[in-house]
Simulated assay, not measured.
Amino acid sequence: MSYRMGDPVHTPTIRCPKPGCDLLLINDEACGCTWPAEPDPDPLLGQALVAFDMSGKRIAAGTVTAVDRTDGRIDLTVEQCP
């Protein structure tokens, strides 16, 4: 749908949903703005993991499904394999 200059437009105003952009979208066309890209996934995601206790006994084995790197720590969530 398109409109001539000066014609009233009876559609709701649509703004770009990207944070920090807020430009009006004309005829539902993308605004072409740039914003910081999503961060790359953590390289540990999807990796195989085998954990051992101090005596060498295996306590967990599986695939890393989530990584939380805060305060100099790394917390891993592992989906265990049988």
Rank of each mutant, 00 (worst) to 15 (best):
A61S: 15
T63M: 10
A51P: 00
C21Q: 01
P17F: 03
M1A: 14
C31K: 01
Q47G: 07
S55T: 15
A51Q: 12
R58W: 01
D53Q: 06
R73V: 03
Q80S: 11
V64I: 15
Q47V: 09
R73F: 11
P8F: 04
R73P: 00
G72F: 09
D75G: 02
G46K: 08
E38D: 13
S2Y: 03
P43C: 06
A37N: 09
R73G: 02
A37K: 14
T77P: 00
T77S: 14
L49V: 15
I26E: 11
C21P: 01
T77M: 07
K18F: 03
K18Q: 12
N27P: 00
L76V: 11
R15P: 01
P82C: 04
P82V: 07
A51C: 14
L25C: 05
A66N: 11
L23H: 11
G56V: 11
L76G: 00
K57H: 11
T34M: 09
R69D: 07
I14A: 12
E79C: 06
C16E: 02
V50Q: 08
T65M: 11
C21A: 04
P41E: 10
E38Q: 14
V64K: 00
A48T: 13
G72D: 07
I59A: 06
R4I: 04
L24G: 00
H10I: 06
D68T: 13
G72Y: 09
M54P: 03
L76D: 00
C33Y: 08
C31A: 06
G6C: 04
A61H: 05
I74R: 11
